[in-house]
Amino acid sequence: MNIPLRELSGKASKSRMMQASTIPLNLTAAVSVRRNEEPSLDRSISSVDKDLQLVRRVAAGDETALRALFAAYGQRLFAYAVRLTRNPSVAEDVLQESLVAAWRGAARFRGQGRVVAWLLGIVHHKALNAIRSRSPVLLEEPEELGDDQVPLDEVMAEHEQAALLRVGLESLSLKHRMVLELVFYQGLDLTEVALVCDCPVGTVKSRLSYAKAHLRHIMEQSGLKAEDLE
């Protein structure tokens, strides 16, 4: 089978995906519907320097610099907070607390990673605190997904693969979902994900591997084969 390789790479197909409005069942669509404000991962030196300058200005008490950071990364931070807390109202509080924490901690930021990863780490910490104080049960591991736990009848009526996958993602535990979120929406590499989640890189890899196995299991329950996805 000849696969158009540029189609396989998320990076290559981003601009097209930005315009996608429906779920692409043929899987030519992909990744980067993720950020309205950033069409691609911007790791250029000037961008890193600019962010670092903003953090330094925040440390010096410049309010416009905090606003600029919010303009650049607010949407991503809010999205991550919503994914973790599953509650936009709580996520808004988490975002506010995170911005205050970033203001207070800016002087300690030494540019040891990308600014966005640092900010996501703060949101991660604040969101977990919010979850612990409101509904600690969310932090617990879900039980293994049994055959009867997937509402397949409801699912089948919709686009089968996409809907199954949504069910699969929803049934993942918080720690697995957060890794998928950080890799696929936030565009972090494994080291950055490990920093945000405060765990070893090996744990990040094993969470990705678990998430994949879990999703495959759900697909296979409905009779879908891995080959069907291609």
Partner: peptide
């Protein structure tokens, strides 16, 4: 290739779930 296809589905779903989330400017 099969794995890539699965991950792309996952990536799409994760991105799609965040599509309409706008950061509330009141937070800043």
């Amino acid at each position: 290739r099969s794995e890539v296809a699965l991950w792309r589905q996952v990536a799409y779903q994760v991105a799609d779930a965040n599509r309409n989330l706008d950061a509330p400017s009141i937070a800043v």
